[in-house]
Amino acid sequence: MLPGDPVMHMFAGQYVTAENMALARETLGLDKPIYIRYFEWLLRIMQGDFGTSIVSKRPVADMILSVLPRTLELAVAATLVTVVFGIPAGVLAAIKKNTWVDSALMVVVSLCVAMPLFWFGLIALLFFSVELRWFPVAANAGWSSLVLPAFVLGLQSACMIARLTRSSMLQVLGDEYVTTARSKGLSPWRVVTVHGLRNAFIPILTLLGVQASWLLGGAVITETVFARPGLGTMAVDAIRQMDFPVLQAVVLIAALTYTTVNLVIDLMNAALDPRIVYDTEASKA
């Protein structure tokens, strides 16, 4: 629930009569009690109607669809950064346990995890865009404008993934089947990837799922820092302007994404680990 009155906000600084304000509340449906409004909203959502923005008067569905691809693009790119940097870093640290490689990686990782996202974003922007001019400061310049936000958003998750990968790999590499694999004379690469990572990946995948939802929260900050249009900036604007329908839609999408991603992750876990079976016949047995 958001404190404040959107109607007051709408007419702020204007001369309006009490009747006009009451009329506006009635057309927006804000005169009804909150539970009625909730069920009305729910009914409309079921029919695919996200309502109309109080501020822009455009259909919310249109607004969302216009920015959704940009946020998805950012989320996918950030996840890619997480996987591409986090997992190899963790594996490397595990293989080189207690060497300077491991220590250096873990120092970087701890720093990354401890840094606030908005601050990291600002520093990156200042350094790479303003000083070095490698990437555009403005957000709308194609792929090159995606690089920096994706890195800022993905790096922190990459660091958490790196830490989990390291501990998960260390545990797996101490397992007996890894000794078996080595006793077969397999190459270290096969031992680490086929026998090690394949087993270590199960907890990593679960954390990736949790982070996918966390990514949407991160997108709010990243998009704001980099002034990228997207669900995040839209949510921030909606909060500022008390645009209920827009905010409700964004929250709904965030929740749906979270559950969908985690369902997909659970199914992927089952595909990865033959001991997990989603089968009613098997669970009866």
Partner: peptide, 13 residues
């Protein structure tokens, strides 16, 4: 060959 055939075989292969 090792002592415990459960933990000596890779569970996911």
């Amino acid at each position: 060959i090792f002592q415990d055939p459960m933990s000596s075989l890779n569970p996911v292969l």
